[in-house]
Computed example of a mutant assay.
Amino acid sequence: LYSVPYHILMLFTIFVALFGLGFHRYFIIDDKGNLGIVSFNIFKPRKVKISDIEKIEVVKTGLSFIFKNGKKRQFYMRKWPKKYFLDALALHPDFKGEVELMDHMTNFDYFAFYEESKKALKLKLRKKGL
Rank of each mutant, 00 (worst) to 15 (best):
Y2Q: 08
Y2H: 11
V4S: 02
V4E: 03
P5L: 03
P5K: 03
Y6N: 12
Y6D: 13
H7Y: 12
H7Q: 09
L9M: 10
M10P: 03
F12W: 06
F15N: 11
V16N: 05
F19H: 14
L21M: 14
G22N: 14
G22V: 07
F23W: 14
F27G: 03
F27H: 01
D31G: 06
G33N: 01
N34M: 06
N34L: 07
I37N: 00
F40M: 14
N41D: 12
N41E: 09
F43Q: 08
K44H: 11
V48P: 02
K49A: 08
I50K: 00
D52N: 11
K55R: 15
K55A: 07
K55M: 14
I56H: 01
E57S: 08
E57A: 09
V58Q: 01
G62S: 04
G62I: 04
G62F: 04
F65N: 05
N69Y: 09
N69W: 05
G70R: 08
G70A: 14
K72H: 09
K72G: 09
R73F: 15
R73Q: 15
Q74V: 15
F75R: 00
Y76C: 10
K79N: 12
K79V: 10
L86A: 05
L86P: 02
L89W: 00
A90T: 09
A90R: 06
L91I: 04
L91M: 05
H92K: 02
D94C: 03
F95E: 01
K96A: 07
E98P: 05
E100A: 11
H104R: 05
H104A: 06
H104K: 03
M105S: 08
F108I: 07
A112D: 14
A112N: 13
E116C: 06
K118V: 15
K119G: 07
L121F: 10
K122Y: 06
K124I: 04
L125M: 12
L125D: 13
R126N: 12
R126Q: 15
K128V: 13
